[in-house]
Design a binder for these strands. Structure first.
Lengths: 342, 342
DNA sequence: CGTCGTTACTTAACCGGTTCGGCTTACCAG
DNA sequence: CTGGTAAGCCGAACCGGTTAAGTAACGACG
């Protein structure tokens, strides 16, 4: 209602608009006495800066962008994203930055969004998720000069600033766990192979199963519950049958558990299940799921801090956030001594 | 980087800035010939309007606001919100509107956010979720003159424009279902009583159980998996024991299923479970969960359309989106003939 | 005492659009 | 031929800030 502007404050304080601007932005050019007076009046009038005006003149939007190239369905199913967004928000909220969130169908639309944002000066920087192998977004962002923090392994980031969790180490931990329980045949229900994280884990899985002399198979999916279930069914009906399955997210692990139960098998007696991205899901199933747990909210917050740093002039670098921690719950145990059809 | 402005277009077309603005905004005041020429040049130069500038002069932000007063944890756990946000986005995206999303701790912070947004002219309108009984946000939004669409029953909206799903009808359907299966003792694991939706359902539950002459109890929770599990345990150990439980969301239903299995009971043989907000969760458990299903993505889209209409000058009104549909799956069946401790 | 450097401002241009009053010009009725 | 009207366009103010450049006052210093 009040529509308080800097001009009004200037009038009341008997100084110029410019002086008020300096005072409010904590910049040199005004005496402490004046600054205090201005701040007091601004507070009294409940002045709030007009974002558009500031943005127009300062060429800063105080907005970060996040594009999610996933179907609405995936976004609903996977708790991951909301957690990540929540983490971003928690940091931006207190800096009074805003988040521009856009959900698109595919990478091309994502690129178009970046181009549009860059042209509109809509965002100061972007957070890029679901990094791919040889990700086409990297050259585009470079060309646009749009500051960005990539969420993913430095091996995928091509020198751009990134934040990552050590998926390879986590995969090793998971395989060490099942191997030490005595499993000799394992399976991996993975996400889409073009995703960087999946690729990293594929490599690690390959290496670790060889190191541990495990018989191994990998089943790629689209991360959905449906394909997680199908892949699980495939694993359970193949010969020799795996006695432990490692999933790339928790949704597929839960779906897998359901398939196991539907076939009349028991966990962990008949089969060991290990999930990734430990959300509440893993704790509310029966039995509870052993999972590679990491703090997704914290991850989102971390990435956001990196982007803020970057805009503040920090030198771009990759930043290891954490290594997912193996939380052992009820879904993992020794393999059955008598193998089915083995 | 081209940084194409309206001025540049004007120069190239040999007309004034103002004329270009009229042409680009499809407003009268320029000839068709000129308009065509301007549009052609604008397209060639790949001109994109600068949001800030437009916002500053037109006093429209082309942004809607959504505040979620929930803990980050709830947001991660409940698939509901991401779906809703996805629905909003799907509409806003094509109108090139933006969504300002803010996650806060409580209602007071939510109110503060509205005040700030109104003062900053940050948003053109807001979408208000988690409507309460005698919601304090309603008078504040009225006073701020901030256009809003409330998500909830007209009985709670106090005359403000709203969009809702018929929770009472859904509750009736659920109780008719379990009653027709032969259940005589039912329980309801509900959300927090101060939430309007919960209140509506409480009323409907009360009426319907009386109508059907069912013995009934209600257990209020905070919607979390933990409290859903606790409430389920309470239900299962009370005497006479309910043979059917109706949950207020799917997360608690899944948690409840896990408790049931943990106690060595079977579903639906020993107990019938009915969930609300049918997300993927209900289909990936074993057994699959009978649920009151509604299209949350569509709901978000609907609400957004209502807000757009409102800003376009439509008369405020309440709008019934749909009635949740009872999807019968494996978790509901006749009650056990021999009651435990009954 | 003149000069130089600071400090504390003021002034005004600028960001990139929108919008309104007013000026031309063309056209038509009287 | 004149007056009125409307379409088409121009110029400039304006939205609410930021910021470079200019200025007045003052103290220090050779």
């Amino acid at each position: 209602m009040s529509r308080v502007t800097i001009k009004e404050i200037a009038r009341r304080c008997g100084v110029s608009q410019g002086a008020v601007s300096y005072a409010l932005n904590n910049q040199p050019g005004v005496s402490e006495a004046t600054r205090a007076r201005v701040l007091k009046v601004a507070a009294e009038l409940e002045w709030v800066p007009n974002r558009a005006a500031r943005q127009l003149s300062a060429a800063r939007s105080e907005t970060f962008g996040l594009v999610l190239a996933r179907t609405a369905q995936t976004l609903i199913e996977e708790p991951y994203f909301m957690g990540f967004v929540g983490g971003i928000e928690s940091v931006l909220g207190e800096k009074s930055y805003a988040l521009a969130l856009q959900v698109v169908a595919d990478l091309d639309e994502e690129l178009a969004t970046y181009r549009k944002w860059a042209a509109e000066r809509r965002v100061d920087g972007v957070i890029v998720v679901d990094l791919r192998v040889a990700d086409p977004r990297i050259p585009v962002l470079r060309k646009l000069g749009l500051p960005a923090v990539l969420v993913g392994d430095p091996a995928l980031a091509d020198g751009m600033p990134c934040a990552w969790t050590d998926g390879a180490a986590a995969m090793n931990a998971a395989l060490d766990h099942v191997a030490s329980l005595g499993h000799r045949v394992v399976a991996r229900v993975a996400g889409p192979p073009e995703f960087g994280d999946v690729w990293i884990r594929d490599q690690a899985y390959e290496l670790a199963t060889r190191r541990l002399a495990l018989s191994a198979s990998t089943h790629h999916t689209d991360y959905s519950a449906t394909q997680g279930a199908t892949a699980t069914r495939d694993v359970l009906t193949s010969n020799p049958r795996a006695t432990a399955i490692i999933y790339d997210n928790d949704l597929m692990a839960v779906a897998g558990l359901s398939v196991v139960q539907g076939l009349g098998l028991r966990t962990p007696d008949d089969i060991t299940l290990v999930a990734w991205d430990d959300s509440a899901l893993c704790r509310i199933t029966h039995p509870t799921l052993t999972a590679l747990s990491h703090n997704i909210v914290g991850y989102g917050a971390e990435v956001t801090h990196r982007l803020l740093d970057l805009l503040a002039g920090a030198t771009p670098q990759s930043h290891l956030y954490s290594t997912p921690l193996l939380i052992i719950r009820d879904s993992s145990g020794p393999p059955p001594t008598v193998r089915l059809r083995g």
